[in-house]
Design a protein around this nucleic acid. Structure first.
Length: 300
DNA sequence: AAGATCGCCTGCAGGC
DNA sequence: TGCCTGCAGGCGATCT
């Protein structure tokens, strides 16, 4: 489940292998992968051919490739917005190799004279929740963003992330704390795993009403999210090798460093009480019943 | 109108 | 063995 650290690992790998390359040919193998590109797969393919990848950026869990057309300088193309959804992978592969079962989009790049063959980019996505779309860049809060990313809030690793502003906005919500942490229009990049880890670190229960949190509690939850995602990135960033951008790069982290997510029945690393699993928002939440006591009553 | 819920997808684990 | 159910869960659409 790619959340911010996993998407950033992918971005770093794409920068290393694809930055500056020119697209030769794109193939869409499954139309659902381009369902958010309203003009359709053939339009996407046509616009990608000949475009140069001049920048690779990210906000929260959204990734995009900024394109340029060297044949028509100044006639800037849109960005390709990529969302990995639940199971999306961006794999940089040597040409001529085996294709994965769930290959949805294949991009071939132009060979450079005197250089080894250019790698291919494979968008592989088992559950097809992810996809690609070409979009114009718009200005949002002083930053150039693809149109459908403009409503996404800055993530905690963004240099312009304003913690105190988000604390204020979080406490103005009338909902439960974990719902707010997962709301990408409030703070982006946090998914189910890092939400549970942040709440465990901050010693707060997922159902705490946001409007009753102190500033210190709200700050603690957001700071913990930033810390755990930074640590995950540091570990995920070491696990991919050349020509392979590993979306599962965080697997080592999952094994060693998770304190709450998926740990039902295991002893809490802080107090020894067994971690419990609860149903929440049609998914699972894991927490320590002693360190993170549930709110007594929801007073709304 | 903010907040909550639904539907989209596939593979796999577990029960019978 | 094979069918069924539940689970994984991000996000845009839709409801209240």
């Amino acid at each position: 489940m790619p959340e911010l650290p996993e998407v950033e690992v992918v971005r770093l790998g794409l920068v290393e292998h694809l930055q500056g390359r020119t697209i030769d040919l794109a193939q869409v193998r499954h139309p659902r992968a381009t369902r958010r590109h309203l003009a359709g797969p053939s339009d996407l393919i046509g616009q990608l051919a000949g475009a140069r990848v001049c920048g690779i950026r990210r906000r929260g869990k959204y990734l995009w490739l900024e394109l340029d057309n060297p044949l028509a300088p100044g006639d800037a193309l849109p960005a390709v917005v990529v969302h990995l959804g639940m199971s999306g992978q961006m794999l940089v592969r040597s040409p001529g190799g085996a294709e994965g079962k769930h290959l949805r989009i294949l991009v071939q790049f132009r060979n450079q004279p005197g250089q080894p063959p250019a790698p291919e980019l494979h968008f592989v996505d088992q559950r097809t929740f992810g996809g690609w779309a070409l979009e114009p860049l718009v200005d949002a809060d002083g930053t150039r963003l693809p149109r459908t990313v403009a409503h996404i809030a800055r993530d905690p690793l963004d240099p312009h992330f304003d913690l105190e502003q988000v604390v204020t906005a979080l406490r103005a919500r009338r909902t439960e704390l974990k719902r707010a942490l997962l709301d990408q229009t409030l703070v982006s990049g946090i998914g189910n795993i890092y939400a549970d880890e942040a709440l465990w670190r901050a010693q707060l229960h997922s159902r705490r009403p946001t409007e009753k949190l102190t500033r210190g509690q709200a700050r603690a939850a957001l700071t913990a999210a930033a810390t755990v995602m930074t640590e995950a990135l540091a570990q995920g960033g070491t696990s991919f090798d050349a020509l392979y951008v590993n979306v599962n790069g965080a697997s080592g982290y999952f094994d060693r460093s998770l304190h709450a997510y998926g740990q039902a029945g295991r002893a809490c690393a802080r107090c020894g009480t067994a971690i419990v699993r609860e149903k929440f928002m049609n998914r699972s939440s894991f927490s320590c019943p002693r360190c993170q006591p549930p709110p007594r009553r929801r007073t709304r």
